[in-house]
Design a binder for these strands. Structure first.
Lengths: 223, 223
DNA sequence: TGCTAATGATAGTAATACTATTATATTCGC
DNA sequence: GCGAATATAATAGTATTACTATCATTAGCA
């Protein structure tokens, strides 16, 4: 069983949490608490208390809650990129790759035993519930330069390249995949909380069908 | 010139701001300040100071900043619904109606002289920059019951009905339009702040083309 | 004139988001 | 095994935020 390391830009932490035991406990408990109580209610004080450490110690790893969220979300996109690469080894047609990408975006993630301090399934639910909060701020331009959105950009680029294999003429692949990825998150949220905004039943099948059809029809060049 | 009133559910305010002069000044200045400094940085104290009133007075109209944002955003959707209805009077084909709806979502809004205390163009930019914040909270289920998302649901339902005239077999119209509407917002944001997530150039034409094509191709039943 | 409703003025509180300082424990080179 | 460096804990403190409460003033109107 080989060790796997998802690398996150050093702009996204003060001190690398993957390098110490305390750092890993911060990550692990942050994920658990953020999913339970949501980003707004979470505080560094609560994380510190839960891992029996202190607020000041948590601040040594992350400048603030926003950076912590950005770290976790970038970790998620890095992880998704690894998963995509693994899956694409045995997939040959670009259509099948896009289909599989949609499935990975929407289907619940299994926990990877090699990385016990990150619960990928919980992290995925955090991404669904909190993702836009990392870019919908007045600091977006500065943070963009610091790589806060790098993971998302990369996924979007990868899917764009695949789509262009199907139809090199398609004019809006980046727009399409930023839309698809964000719809993958929001449709999951809507099914659970705002069902009038979705036609999907509980479970991920309908969302996958919706997004797959949307993607393939849009990039097709017939008609 | 007849007077026009956008009605917002009374769950979205403590005391109706449209009924008093102070209320209108709160709305007007909130819109201006929120666009300038963003939702996070805005406080009731700042609004109060800017209109030369007091924090307590602002609290008499809105329970908190979140309710104020929900009010403004619902006002926007109510306004958009009025605009759609006006435009549809002279449009006959469902295709043209959908095209026009996309344009209204993306093109900058003009100020309506009949409603001097609401700057619709500024409000539209607030919606682009802040919209998901009203539902991405732990209170979403309670607030959904109170009608916090009513305006959005209605727009989505209207576009769904039109799409079903084009293709009554299409299975995911609500999902499609919640996706299109939210993409209309996020693509505007991406063009300005995260250009790697979009192929559109500045200005709204590319976004309109992208969304229109996406919509019409997806609901078409050929192939 | 007096009643009511709206607003203003002022104060106060608990929680949050940090920053700073000092003490203690652990690790690492030597 | 020693000293130096580093990580963490313990504690305190500050400015701001997000409210709540109270009381005074003003304007309208019956």
């Amino acid at each position: 069983m080989n060790v796997l390391n998802i690398t996150v830009s050093h702009k996204l932490y003060q001190k690398n949490p993957e390098e110490t035991d305390l750092g890993k406990r911060i990550l692990s408990k942050s994920i658990e608490l953020m999913e339970q109580m949501g980003y707004e209610q979470l505080t560094f004080k609560k994380i510190a208390t839960a891992i029996e450490s202190t607020e000041a110690s948590v601040y040594r790893y992350f400048q603030n809650k926003h950076q912590l969220l950005a770290y976790l979300i970038n970790w998620y996109w890095g992880w998704l990129e690894v998963k995509l690469a693994q899956e694409f080894i045995i997939l040959n047609s670009p259509e099948n790759k896009l289909k599989r990408a949609v499935q990975l975006l929407v289907a619940p993630m299994d926990q990877d035993a090699r990385i016990p301090h990150i619960n990928e399934g919980t992290l995925q639910r955090i991404v669904v519930a909190e993702y836009p909060k990392i870019y919908l701020t007045k600091e977006v331009d500065v943070e963009n330069k610091e790589g806060y959105f790098h993971g998302y950009n990369r996924i979007c680029d990868i899917l764009t390249m695949i789509a262009l294999q199907i139809n090199p003429e398609y004019k809006f692949p980046h727009s399409l995949f930023s839309t698809i990825i964000s719809a993958a998150q929001s449709q999951q949220f809507f099914v659970e909380h705002l069902p009038r905004l979705s036609d999907a039943k509980a479970g991920c099948e309908d969302i996958i069908d919706f997004l797959t059809e949307l993607t393939l029809k849009t990039i097709s060049n017939d008609e």
